[in-house]
Amino acid sequence: MKFDLPSFLLGYGAGASSVLIGKHLRPLLLEIATAAYRFGDALIARVAMKQEDLEDLLAEAQARARGRSRAPSPEAQA
């Protein structure tokens, strides 16, 4: 492989700077990663909820369409 000085300098600079500023960057990266996880979890939860809502809707519709007897209307909280 041909030695390319600019690429070498860029790579070396990137490595050296990541070592030098890594200590200061870690908390920021941690926060960014936490925010990313939170976003991911919230997205997964939202998708799961929508899926469940759809299941509930279809189940209720099916029950009504097939004439399942109605339960007593909700009156009080248990």
Binding site: M49, E52, A71, P72, P74, Q77, A78
Partner: peptide, 25 residues
Amino acid sequence: AEPRSGRMLVCYAERAPLLARLSEQ
């Protein structure tokens, strides 16, 4: 129980009047 959404599905029989009386909050 679905840990992704934090919600739980409970299907009950006709003979479960206590659960049938729960209302949505």
